[in-house]
């Protein structure tokens, strides 16, 4: 029994907005990174749904590549977080604002 593609997209949208709002509201950098992971995955649902809908493997391949890039991103972001935490144990992202114009 086929589930309509619109349902998947709705789930994807809801999950994405959850991640986005979380990114904007939280101040712990690690939690923010997890919010970003949520957004990646929301995108992945949409890709996979479209792949199924159009019967095209390219969407799935793209999900695979997104996962890979997300892994790279997470590694780098966590490295930055590690650097920041070494400097001071208690980190609020709003404290890291020296790069303003």
């Amino acid at each position: 029994m086929q589930i309509p593609v619109g349902d998947y997209l709705a789930v994807s949208a809801a999950l994405f907005i959850t991640g986005a709002v979380g990114f904007l509201l939280r101040r712990n950098p690690i939690t923010m990174l997890m919010a970003i992971e949520l957004m990646w995955n929301a995108g992945n649902i949409a890709f996979a749904a479209f792949a199924r809908s159009f019967v095209d493997m390219s969407g799935q391949i793209f999900v695979f590549i997104v996962i890979t890039v997300a892994a790279a991103e997470a590694a780098i972001a966590l490295a930055i977080v590690v650097m920041v935490f070494r400097r001071r144990p208690h980190v609020d992202v709003d404290d890291i604002s020296i790069m303003r114009g």
């Binding site: 959850t18 991640g19 709002v21 939280r26």
Partner: peptide, 13 residues
């Protein structure tokens, strides 16, 4: 879907 949304909110909350 329910699990996804609930845990998603849990993650950010």
């Amino acid at each position: 879907t329910v699990v996804l949304l609930l845990t998603g909110i849990g993650v950010i909350a």
